[in-house]
Design a protein around this nucleic acid. Structure first.
Length: 565
RNA sequence: GCGCCCGUAGCUCAGCUGGAUAGAGCAUCGGCCUUCUAAGCCGACGGUCCCAGGUUCGAAUCCUGGCGGGCGCGCCA
């Protein structure tokens, strides 16, 4: 890798100059005139060496070993003191061979021995269908987990079910009301009940299965059955949606298990031992302000029951004890108030500061025709993840949820999402992939040859395209480090755009010399190798984001069913 | 009132550790065109990076103070 050679050559030179910066920053300049790599070391060292940046840069440039050894053809000093490195054509085009050789592993780092990471996401209560916030979270958590895997981490995906709280009780009471209504009885929905259609449907199913026998339910046994029935049904619905969405979890963790296994109790004892627990107004409090929380928190209410804070802390203790010394929670930013208190509770138990890490995302709104799509809150129905996937497909939904940084509000434009042309970044990327697959098929399907005369790929457009393909591993690293899947979306769209431009540039009807399938066998082999490398990188990038990489695309208007319709 | 997040082109948004002339997509406008199958291709227009100070060789980026928007501030989850 040329950048490694540049970096090590630089550090040797700098050492001789009496300066050894902790790290040497190399970047890919935006402007191709600035070469393939650039460094600002001369500028950062100006003050310590007490000389002008340009002077330092000149000295480095003069000492820099160009030639086959480093792959650097020339070094120039530019602007305020940048060092611009221009690679030899050979050094650039070698990337194509590397990509072909590494194939499905190109961009993937070797697995490190760092602590495994637990990514917790979605964690919806089983009280309704998954809404758009859950959808964004499903896409984000899954892509983030995938990014971390590509970056060499051991990763586990987990879903935490709040199946023990008041919300479940409300659900049961709501089903009960709908059950009575189903049989024409008067029973109003509880004030804070769930109004959604799905609840009525579940009540109807229950009525179908169990008949009228629970209309009289003095012991509450019927209510208990309804609770179980509804939770099971809703979990099944959520699982169905998550499967359709292509999200798999390694584990579903039930809140109720924290109670049945005594973890909540253990947590209470642990907190009491911390000496930060006190009683006030009949409740038990934890002095979370000790660790930067805005106010102290109640852990046991005056009626003797736990607040949700307690199982939350207990749950995170299990994460730590299960060896996940790195944990990332993907949550809606409306929950950011819980961050400080959970961390405080964990610190009181001796866990390190800043555990767990949070990725908080903003809300999602949907627009059609430039207008926000409103849904009726009154009848409890809302736009669901399922609605979106039914309308524009799984991959588009995933991508649109990922394309904005988590902390920014997301506008889901349905018109744009439904567009199947290159204007839609998802289709743009898929078409680019399908196009290169098509060329490879047309070429006879033989495997692209990494030993082709790659130095023939010397045109500006090809050189820049290869540079872009070669930046994929850095993209993975950066996006993982920043917990930022949207960077991968940007990168994919940009790369697909470059691929498409290259493809159109080589349109045989207009520019036969630029086509892949030219007559000259050497050039043809070199371009086929590049085509193969494009396929590898696009496929890897799509896979990274959990999207399909189709080898061919069907025309929407190929509904040419003869005899039908 | 306090805390967190956001404010960049008409719209939706990127912008790496502070770096070179601030970038995409959409929309608009102007050409071209029917493809190595793919609902097009090429180009142009478009900026007070919310405001005001500060830090320094250099600020969209860091600091302080405002302004505007979102969210949160329960013995609810």
């Amino acid at each position: 890798m040329p950048q490694e050679q540049i970096r090590s050559s630089l550090s040797v030179i700098l050492e001789e100059m009496g300066a050894s910066p902790p790290s040497i920053h190399l970047e890919r300049p935006k402007d191709p005139d600035h070469g393939e790599w650039a460094s600002n070391v001369a500028m950062t060292l100006a003050s310590t060496l007490r000389r002008s940046p340009r002077q330092i840069a000149e000295e480095i440039a003069a000492a820099f070993p160009t030639g086959a050894q480093t792959g650097v053809a020339s070094v120039e000093v530019a602007g305020p003191g940048f060092l611009n490195f221009r690679l030899s054509t050979d050094a650039v085009t070698r990337t194509v061979a590397t990509i072909l050789e590494e194939d499905a592993d190109f961009g993937r780092q070797a697995v490190s021995d760092e602590a495994p990471v637990l990514v917790e996401f979605v964690s919806a209560n089983p009280t309704g269908l998954l809404h758009l916030g859950h959808g964004r979270q499903a896409a984000l958590g899954d892509a983030l987990a995938s990014l971390l895997e590509w970056a060499g981490n051991r990763v586990s995906r987990e879903f935490y079910y709040n199946d023990a709280g008041r919300q479940i009780e409300r659900l049961a009471l709501s089903v009960q009301a709908r059950y009575h209504q189903h049989f024409g009885r008067e029973m109003p929905l509880p004030e804070d009940g769930y109004r959604g259609r799905i609840v009525s449907e579940i009540a109807a199913e229950f009525a179908e299965a169990e008949g009228e026998r629970w209309l009289d339910d003095p012991e509450g046994a019927g209510l208990e059955r309804m609770r179980e029935f509804a939770v099971t049904r809703l979990r099944a619905e959520q699982d169905l949606d998550l499967n359709t969405f292509g999200v798999r979890f390694d584990r579903y963790f039930l809140e109720s298990s924290l109670y049945t296994e005594g973890r909540v109790e253990t947590t209470v004892e642990g907190l009491r031992e911390s000496g930060l627990v006190y009683e006030k107004d009949g409740a038990v409090w934890l002095r979370t302000t000790e660790f930067g929380d805005q106010k102290d928190r109640v852990m046991i209410k005056s009626d003797g029951s736990a607040t949700y804070f307690l199982p939350d802390v207990a749950y995170h203790v299990t994460k730590w004890e299960r060896g996940f010394h790195r944990a990332i929670n993907v949550q809606g930013s409306d929950h950011h108030g819980t961050v400080d208190r959970v961390r405080a509770g964990l610190r009181a138990l001796g866990l390190p500061e800043g555990y767990p890490e949070y990725v908080l995302h903003q809300m999602v709104t949907v627009e059609r025709g430039g207008e926000e799509v409103k849904f009726s809150k009154r009848d409890g129905d809302y736009l669901t993840l399922r609605d979106l996937v039914d309308e524009v497909g799984r991959d588009v939904t995933r991508y649109f949820f990922l394309m904005r940084k988590p902390e920014a509000h997301l506008v889901f434009d349905l018109d744009w999402a439904a567009d199947e042309s290159d204007k839609n970044p998802v289709y743009k990327a898929k078409y680019a992939h399908a196009r290169v697959c098509s060329i490879l098929r047309k070429a006879g399907g033989a495997a692209p040859d990494p030993d082709a005369s790659l130095e023939l790929l010397s045109s500006e457009i090809e050189r820049e395209l290869i540079q872009q393909l070669g930046s994929f591993p850095e993209l993975v690293e950066r996006a993982a480090a920043h917990r930022a899947p949207h960077l991968a979306c940007d990168w994919l769209e940009h790369t697909a755009g470059q691929v498409n431009a290259w493809y159109h540039h080589g349109n045989p009807a207009r520019n036969p010399g630029g086509a892949v399938l030219v007559d000259d066998p050497d050039l043809r082999a070199a371009r086929l190798a590049l085509t193969g490398a494009i396929r590898v990188v696009l496929r890897n990038a799509l896979t990274l984001l959990g999207l399909d990489a189709p080898e061919r695309m069907e025309r929407a208007e190929s509904d040419d069913e003869p005899g039908e319709g």
